[in-house]
Every structure is written in C-alpha cells, then in structure tokens.
Computed example of a mutant assay.
Amino acid sequence: MAQDLDTIDARILDIIQRDASLSVAEIADRVGLSSSPCWRRIKRMEEAGFITGRVTLLDNFALGLNFEVMASVKLALPSRENLEAFESIVQDWSEVIECMTVTGAVDYMIHVVTTDMHAYDNFLRDKLLGSALVSDVQSRIVVRVSKRTTALPLGLVSDKLKSS
C-alpha cells in the first residue's frame, strides 16, 4: 500500500501527523505545492485509508490523570469467542487507552490511565478481575515516560519509496 505514496505524500503525512491544526496552505508551503494539489493529495490519502482521523492530544498530567499502568492480561480460556468478548468489553472501559493482542504467555497488553493507585485498584478489581474472562493480570506501574509520540516512522516509508 505504501507504494501508492510518493515522497511528497510521505512528507505531507509526516507534517499532519505532528500538527493536524495546520491549514492546507501551510502544509502546501512546507512541501512546495500550491494549496489545491496539496488538498487533493490529502483527500486522496483520506479516501485510501492512510489518514483515519484527526485528533487533539491532551496532557494527562495537566488533567490530573497521573497514574499509568501497563498491564498484561491472561484470559481464563483464550478461545475465539472469549477474545472477541474481551475486546468488546474493553471498548467500554475509558481507563484503557490501548489494548493489544500479543504473543507469549499472556493474551493482551493494556495501557491504563487513571487518577491514582486507588482508582487503578478499583478498575482492577471491578472491571478487569470482575470479568469472568480474565484469569490473571500483571501490572507494571509507569514511573516515568521518556518518550511518547503518536507519530509513525514515515522516514521508513520515504526510504522505501526512494529505493523503488
């Protein structure tokens, strides 16, 4: 699918993934296009599914959401039905900001954000362990975040485009 992109497309994507508030004119100026062709490229990439949405990123610490946990979740019975059921209930848990199926001794890694240890304990007891689907949870409290980004490594896409 990346072969449908050229280096200008990759530059546009890199710009808007770092700051979606920029106008089309500002993006166009940064990549050396006029506004109309830039807008058409952005629309084409939206329609192709390269751009799936635009959001505003919030500072969890400024909002008092100071407690983060990475939790390994093991299901009691990892059947197709139970995997789908767990993935469905996680959608309703606002504390879970990421849920990923993983390989190895556990079934999922979830990233939980909440206000404090007590709120996490309530989440753990009432929601995670309260679900008959879950047999084990191993929690890792995040002490410090040394890097956090939503930006994908589009330099890898650009490198691939240059070599093709």
Rank of each mutant, 00 (worst) to 15 (best):
L58D: 08
A71P: 13
A76I: 15
V90M: 06
L65S: 06
E81F: 13
L77G: 11
W93Y: 10
T56H: 13
V69H: 05
S72A: 05
A76L: 13
L63D: 02
L75R: 00
V55C: 08
F86Y: 13
E87M: 11
V73I: 12
I89Y: 06
L77P: 12
E81V: 14
A62T: 07
V90E: 01
K74M: 13
L83I: 15
L65F: 08
G53Y: 02
V73E: 08
S88K: 14
F86V: 01
F86S: 03
S72T: 07
L63A: 08
E95L: 04
N60T: 11
S88G: 09
V73M: 06
L77A: 15
E87H: 02
D92L: 08
Q91Y: 09
S88T: 14
S94A: 12
P78V: 01
L57F: 08
V73A: 01
I97H: 01
I89K: 02
V73G: 07
W93G: 05
N82Y: 03
L75S: 10
A85M: 07
N60L: 13
E95V: 07
V55E: 12
D59W: 00
F86E: 13
V90Q: 02
V73L: 04
V96M: 00
E84V: 14
L58Q: 09
S79E: 11
M70W: 06
I89G: 03
A62M: 10
D92E: 11
I89E: 11
G53D: 08
L63S: 09
V96D: 00
N82T: 04
V90I: 14
D92K: 01
A76N: 09
E68Q: 14
L57R: 04
R54T: 07
N60A: 15
V55H: 09
F61Q: 11
N82H: 12
E87V: 06
N60C: 07
A85S: 12
V96Y: 01
W93P: 03
L77F: 15
L63I: 15
V73K: 03
N66V: 09
G64W: 07
F67I: 02
V96K: 00
N82L: 15
F67T: 00
M70K: 02
V73R: 00
V90G: 04
E87S: 11
Q91L: 09
S72P: 00
R54F: 12
E81I: 07
M70L: 11
W93V: 08
R80E: 15
R54H: 11
A76Y: 15
A62Y: 09
